[in-house]
Computed example of a mutant assay.
Amino acid sequence: MPGFVLLVRPRGDGDDARGIGYTVSKKVGNAVTRNRMKRRLRALCRAALPESGIAGADHVLIGRPGGNDIVFAELGEQLDSALARAAKKLATKAP
């Protein structure tokens, strides 16, 4: 995704809670820019993870340069698409 990278890893501990983490490196910009990106990522996850997140997995969003320039609604669509792709990929790996 152009605005962020989504990593998903099942924990395998039997807990259905969805873990979430955010990281935005200094390559993205100064502190103000990085904090804005993290706030946007948190808002996206608050809206999308309860219904689209993968139960029992840790989700990590890594902000990419230019992510603040993308319209918020478009970032939401990208996150939904990324979560769907991750769920499909994990479903094919499941024993």
Rank of each mutant, 00 (worst) to 15 (best):
residue 3 G to R: 05
residue 3 G to D: 13
residue 3 G to H: 07
residue 3 G to L: 02
residue 4 F to G: 01
residue 4 F to K: 04
residue 4 F to W: 00
residue 4 F to D: 00
residue 5 V to C: 09
residue 5 V to G: 01
residue 5 V to I: 12
residue 7 L to Q: 15
residue 7 L to W: 05
residue 7 L to C: 12
residue 8 V to M: 00
residue 9 R to C: 13
residue 9 R to T: 14
residue 10 P to F: 02
residue 10 P to M: 00
residue 11 R to I: 00
residue 11 R to F: 00
residue 11 R to G: 00
residue 12 G to L: 02
residue 12 G to E: 01
residue 12 G to D: 00
residue 13 D to V: 05
residue 14 G to D: 03
residue 14 G to N: 02
residue 14 G to K: 08
residue 14 G to H: 03
residue 15 D to M: 07
residue 15 D to L: 11
residue 15 D to C: 14
residue 16 D to N: 09
residue 16 D to E: 15
residue 16 D to A: 15
residue 17 A to C: 08
residue 18 R to H: 04
residue 18 R to A: 06
residue 18 R to M: 10
residue 19 G to L: 01
residue 19 G to I: 02
residue 19 G to V: 05
residue 20 I to M: 15
residue 20 I to G: 02
residue 21 G to H: 03
residue 21 G to N: 07
residue 22 Y to A: 04
residue 22 Y to P: 07
residue 23 T to A: 13
residue 25 S to L: 09
residue 25 S to V: 08
residue 26 K to H: 11
residue 26 K to P: 08
residue 26 K to Q: 15
residue 26 K to M: 06
residue 27 K to I: 14
residue 27 K to S: 14
residue 28 V to G: 10
residue 28 V to Y: 03
residue 29 G to C: 10
residue 29 G to I: 04
residue 29 G to S: 03
residue 29 G to Y: 04
residue 29 G to D: 12
residue 29 G to M: 11
residue 30 N to W: 10
residue 31 A to T: 06
residue 31 A to H: 09
residue 31 A to N: 10
residue 32 V to F: 13
residue 32 V to W: 09
residue 33 T to C: 14
residue 33 T to F: 07
residue 33 T to V: 15
residue 34 R to E: 08
residue 34 R to D: 09
residue 34 R to F: 05
residue 35 N to T: 13
residue 36 R to Y: 11
residue 37 M to G: 11
residue 39 R to P: 08
residue 39 R to M: 09
residue 40 R to C: 06
residue 40 R to I: 12
residue 41 L to I: 01
residue 41 L to Q: 08
residue 41 L to V: 06
residue 42 R to P: 02
residue 42 R to Y: 01
residue 43 A to H: 06
residue 43 A to F: 01
residue 44 L to T: 03
residue 44 L to Y: 12
residue 44 L to V: 12
residue 45 C to M: 02
residue 45 C to F: 02
residue 46 R to F: 13
residue 46 R to D: 15
residue 47 A to N: 10
residue 47 A to I: 12
residue 48 A to V: 09
residue 49 L to F: 00
residue 50 P to H: 06
residue 51 E to F: 14
residue 51 E to N: 15
residue 52 S to C: 15
residue 53 G to R: 09
residue 53 G to M: 07
residue 53 G to L: 00
residue 55 A to L: 14
residue 55 A to S: 12
residue 56 G to T: 10
residue 56 G to N: 10
residue 56 G to L: 03
residue 56 G to I: 02
residue 56 G to M: 07
residue 56 G to P: 03
residue 57 A to G: 07
residue 57 A to F: 01
residue 57 A to P: 10
residue 57 A to K: 07
residue 58 D to V: 04
residue 58 D to G: 08
residue 59 H to E: 04
residue 60 V to R: 11
residue 60 V to Y: 13
residue 60 V to C: 10
residue 61 L to P: 02
residue 61 L to E: 02
residue 61 L to T: 08
